[in-house]
Simulated scan of single mutants.
Amino acid sequence: LVGGGALLLAVSLVWHSHAAGEAFLRLTEGWSGRLAVLLLCLTLVPNAAVWAAAYALGPGFVLGAGHVVAPTASAPAPLLPPFPLLAAVPDAGPGTPLHWAAGAVPLLAGAVVGWFTARAATAGEPKERGAGPAAGVWSWRRTAAAAVVAAVLCAVLVALLAAFAGGPLGSAALARFGPVWWQAGGATLAWTGVVAVPVAVAARAWRGRSAAAREEVVEASGAEEAADGGGRRPRWVRVPVPSVGRWWRRGATKDAEAGAGAGAGVDGDVDAVPFGLYDGDGGGAYDLLPADGPGQSSPRGGE
């Protein structure tokens, strides 16, 4: 809201750039004095932004006792000192549609408050494990209550800023200068509450529906993947592979067994695979091979 007031102040200064330049040159003639005035203007820009925000809210601000400047009507004090920031004050007279357009600032501020409230309402984690993101969405009553709380906080903050940005500059006519804090706070509460609550509820419903739709799409895609590739993954098992370094021991064992068989009268099978070739003793090498294919199964090696 204050940022919108700063933008409104900048637009008004550009619109009244000629009057602001004349006021700047009339205050002093030396460069040192002009530099001091420029620094003073820069220091008072935050105060002027709060004044512009109060103007956009509707109550406006007071330039002297009994002289209110608002979008509906402007009546600044006739004897104001020449100051560049005061050149942005609208001319005396009733408000025009151009002045009424300043009401877009609180409207936009209320919409922003409602949008961020809806984001907070749909960003929570689900309480139950395994539940989708739509399970963590606030109810519309909780969302509306959060928007009201946000509006109250904004109103309190604007009221404090208005109290610090205004005050008396003297006596008599200058006893009242700047926005009235309770008027600025009340207008902020009204504008923000009226706009933020419906925006928050509507945005919460839209974002919650989008989260539910994304959840359904993810579940459908997961089901399709499970149906398509559920039984097609090959299973991998360890198959023993004969070790090259053990052939000399296996050969000696085979010769010994062949000699023992000949002595006993039993014919040895020289083509038989030695016992223990595929056992797990001695640190033999292993390889990973698929145990079964897409539609068939193969027995384990060595069995």
Rank of each mutant, 00 (worst) to 15 (best):
G5M: 05
A19W: 00
G114H: 02
P133Y: 00
V194T: 14
L9R: 05
S210Y: 01
G276F: 07
P84K: 03
L27Q: 12
A77C: 12
A272Y: 02
D279R: 09
F116K: 06
G265Y: 07
G130W: 09
R142E: 15
P94S: 12
V217T: 10
E224T: 07
D271E: 12
P179T: 02
L13F: 05
D228G: 03
R129L: 12
L13N: 05
E216I: 02
P242E: 12
A163W: 15
W191N: 03
V199I: 14
L289K: 03
L7T: 10
G263H: 05
V158T: 14
A165N: 11
A65S: 13
F177D: 12
V113E: 06
V239G: 02
A291N: 02
D292N: 12
V113D: 04
A131P: 06
L35D: 10
E215M: 00
L189A: 15
S221A: 14
A213G: 15
T72H: 14
A202N: 02
W15S: 09
T72Y: 10
Y286F: 11
H18L: 05
L288S: 10
V62Y: 11
A77I: 03
V89W: 00
S17G: 06
L288T: 10
G4F: 04
A56V: 04
A184S: 15
L7Y: 01
A19T: 13
A53K: 09
A102K: 01
T253F: 03
Y278S: 02
L153K: 01
A151W: 02
A87V: 06
P198C: 07
E224V: 11
S243D: 15
V62R: 12
W236S: 06
E22T: 14
L289G: 02
G259R: 13
E215C: 01
A226F: 04
R246H: 10
V11F: 09
L108I: 08
G261F: 03
G302P: 03
E215R: 00
T143H: 01
V197D: 01
A146L: 09
A23D: 15
W191R: 10
V113K: 01
A104D: 06
R232G: 14
A75L: 11
G66F: 10
Y278M: 07
S297C: 07
A172N: 08
G124K: 10
L40W: 07
A70Q: 15
G245L: 14
N47R: 12
G193H: 04
A19Y: 00
A56L: 05
A262I: 06
L98A: 15
